[in-house]
Design a protein around this nucleic acid. Structure first.
Length: 459
RNA sequence: GCGGUCAUCGUCUAUCGGUUAAGACACCGGUUUGUGGUACCGGGAAGCAGAGUUCAAUUCUCUGUGGCCGCCCCA
């Protein structure tokens, strides 16, 4: 019997589902690698938004927002045809109008495009731009890696002095430190300019050619397209080869060498915890001279890359603008949050309501809606649960929220134009006239509240 | 793109080739009608999808999908 009933139930269920499935199944989840940012995580996002915006102001950056979608070839040309990002990780699509566009895989190309388009080169130098938002990479998701993720981006245009490199690196470090992540390490390197890098590349390819048998299959491939990337291959045999490979820092032209030397001096002056990593290369083609990455995590040697950047003196011109040096970096918001949680950094807590408004009866219910907005206009943050009927259940909610005062507006009070103020700690309550309510509540919140609750830093 | 691993209420977990699929937390409601934290009572809520094996599958197999981990790469 039960079996049959069950079977019937299932058939009915399936029937419904099949009908739906024929249209297209509705999956109650976002596409792979995308995720919701839930209210419980917002304190971390708030903290990062506030901190990055504050620092951008303090260091003289102006905010810019560019579209999530750009023409595909902007990235192909800017970021580089041969890079992984462009070659296999871009969300490309064709619009109804036939335009070939892509979801931005990073922010700099779009910002550079805007810089050129709007003639920002006429602004007083340096031109500092700050941006933040989602970026998209079709990669295999795992912890700290999503197909939609968020970056904060700082770029400086129009200044080639190494002091800007140092300051930009300092901003990166300041952001991370300000979030409470103490164990930051900056890795820096110089990959030279167009001319000396070419010479160096030839040298490197020659060297690699001589050790070709010892390289992994991937690296044999990389030799052709992007020999620099062999240097940071994680394969044991490759890193052995890389260890004795000629290093770009040793083959810089005079200008680049001086630039790098100055940068290091500035960094010393700033007392930033940096190390030179001759293997550091970065995956985007537009970099020249300075490249750097920001790492966090020490204990148990588990490290994670929080962000990186570098100088890109050739990008603007390559995209068709008037030659302009530039340097910038991006930080990954999701990774910053992982680190914040790991080191138990305190997130930002928005103010919580300290007053609850309870209502009872039809007349009071109507009046409470207006009273609520009256309180809001006076800056009194109030909670409510208007949909509930019983006073009991409303008080339960008030208690759960942890408010200090509950205002009770019942049938009787509504007629008398009064409100009951109940102190949730002592339980004492008093009846006051509606006109005096706001002032009295304000006064009470100022005085009676030794009862505060603070952030317990959960999560 | 490759490899590994996992998939049961909102969450955490249990059980089972045939069961009303159990519990805890959370949520909602009630304990005599206008008063909260405790207690008691009650309620809603799940087998990722598809195919196969079987008299019978949530359970076994395969595929897909998704999470996590490693590689690659990066943020």
């Amino acid at each position: 019997m039960a079996k049959i009933a069950k079977k019937i139930k299932k058939m009915v269920k399936n029937k419904g589902k099949k009908a739906e499935a024929q249209k297209e199944p509705l999956l109650l989840q976002p596409p792979r690698g995308m995720k919701d940012i839930l209210p419980e995580d917002q304190p971390y996002w708030d903290h990062i938004r506030r901190t990055t915006e504050r620092l951008s102001r303090e260091y003289g950056f102006m905010r810019i927002d560019t579209p999530l979608v750009e023409f595909s070839n902007l990235f192909a040309r800017g970021v580089g045809e041969g890079t992984d990002i462009v070659e296999k990780e871009m969300y490309n699509f064709v619009t109804k109008g036939g335009d070939k566009v892509a979801l931005r895989p990073e922010m700099t190309a779009g910002i550079a495009r805007a810089y050129i388009q709007h003639g920002m080169n006429v602004l007083p130098k340096p031109i500092k731009l700050f941006s933040t938002g989602p970026v998209y990479r079709y990669d295999r998701p795992q912890e700290g890696r999503y197909r939609e993720f968020h970056q904060v981006n700082y770029d400086v245009f129009g200044e080639q002095d190494a002091i800007l490199d140092a300051q930009v690196i300092q901003v990166a470090a300041r952001v991370v430190q300000s979030l409470g992540i103490k164990s930051v390490q900056i890795q820096v390197n110089s990959i030279g300019c167009a001319t000396c890098r070419k010479e160096y590349k030839d040298l490197l390819v020659n060297y690699l050619e001589s050790k070709k048998q010892k390289l992994c299959a991937d690296c044999k491939n990389r030799m052709e397209h992007n020999p620099l990337r062999v240097l940071d291959c994680k394969e044991d045999k490759c890193s052995q080869v890389a260890a004795t490979a000629p290093q770009s820092v040793d083959h810089l032209c005079d200008e680049c060498r001086i630039h790098f030397k100055c940068l290091l001096e500035y960094l010393d002056e700033l007392e930033l915890p940096y190390v030179i990593n001759p293997q550091l290369v970065r995956g985007l083609d537009y970099y020249s001279k300075t490249v750097f990455e920001v790492w966090s995590g020490d204990e148990e040697g588990r490290k994670s890359a929080l962000g990186g950047g570098g100088r890109y003196d050739g990008l603007i011109k390559m995209l068709g603008g008037e030659q302009a040096p530039a340097i910038g970096f991006g930080l990954g918001v999701e990774r910053l949050i992982i680190e914040m949680k790991r080191v138990q950094a305190k997130p930002y807590r928005a103010p919580k309501p300290r007053v609850f408004l309870a209502q009872l009866g039809d007349l009071a219910k109507k009046k409470s809606l207006k009273l609520f907005s009256e309180l809001e206009k006076n800056g009194i943050l109030t909670a409510e649960s208007f949909g509930r009927g019983s006073l009991k259940s409303q008080l339960r909610v008030a208690d759960k929220i942890g408010v200090e005062l509950t205002l009770i507006l019942g049938q009787k009070e509504a007629l008398d134009k009064t409100v009951i103020i109940k102190n949730m700690v002592s339980g004492v309550q008093e009846i006051v006239s509606t006109e005096k309510l706001v002032d009295l509540v304000k006064k009470k919140l100022k005085t009676d509240n030794v009862v505060t609750y603070h952030d317990n830093g959960s999560h």
